[in-house]
């Protein structure tokens, strides 16, 4: 464990807690893409298949349970909670996320470190996570402006993967034979996808005006 990875995990934890608290307290999910939340639930379900078979550390197991629990809770809130579901804008959240799942699965069948069930699904979860934010960013473009909490959620989500890139650089230089191109490339692509959002988020924060994304 290194400071970059720990900072990344805490930022990631903060992002899901910000979203869960927002939905739980104001009982609204306006501006949140259910498609992105469903993709994240799939990402965690396929990445943490080894949660009960390979014990790495209490921290690792605890965080996996938190990420699984929070992502499925958010999906449950947005789909089934009688009040929250009313604020879900399904007419705007129309990104065909199955068009993301199939290519990621096919790619994971081709590019992986070991062709086993668990390794292919783990690789699939990395590719899917890289593009999971797309429905949310498309929804933001459509609804034009976003409330602070959703903006913070996306900012933290992008920042966590940026921290992980520093973690991979650190591990590359400190651990011999630590070379994993698949998570590195997927993680870099993921962070780049947040690029324009970061740009507008930073400028709105600097000029202290409401975050408006260009059409």
């Amino acid at each position: 464990m290194n400071i970059f990875r720990f900072a990344g995990d805490m930022t990631h934890l903060a992002s899901v807690l910000v979203l869960l608290l927002k939905i739980h307290t104001i009982k609204s999910c306006a501006g949140v893409s259910l498609k992105t939340q469903e993709l994240y639930a799939i990402v965690f379900a396929t990445r943490y298949l080894d949660i009960f078979t390979d014990f790495i550390s209490l921290y690792n197991t605890f965080m996996k349970l938190v990420f699984l629990g929070s992502s499925f809770s958010i999906v449950w809130y947005m789909r089934s909670h009688k009040i929250v579901r009313r604020s879900y804008d399904k007419d705007q959240d129309t990104f065909r996320h199955y068009f993301l799942i199939v290519p990621c699965l096919l790619l994971a069948m081709i590019i992986n470190e070991k062709f086993t069930f668990r390794e292919v699904l783990w690789t699939f979860s990395l590719f899917l996570e890289a593009v999971a934010i797309l429905p949310q960013l498309v929804l933001l473009q459509r609804t034009r402006n976003i409330d602070n909490l959703t903006g913070q959620y996306i900012f933290l989500l992008g920042a966590y993967r940026a921290f992980y890139i520093f973690n991979w650089i650190y591990r590359y230089f400190t651990e011999p034979h630590y070379v994993h191109w698949i998570p590195w490339i997927a993680g870099l692509l993921q962070t780049l996808l947040y690029g324009d959002f970061f740009y507008y988020y930073f400028h709105s924060w600097k000029n202290n005006k409401k975050l408006q994304l260009p059409a």
Binding site: R5, D9, H12, D50, D54, I56, N60, M63, K64, F67, E113, K114, E119, W122, Y164, N167, H177, Y178, H180, P183
Partner: peptide
């Protein structure tokens, strides 16, 4: 080992 395969990360 798990660490080798990079699976020790979240």
């Amino acid at each position: 080992t798990k660490a080798h395969l990079g699976h020790d990360e979240l």
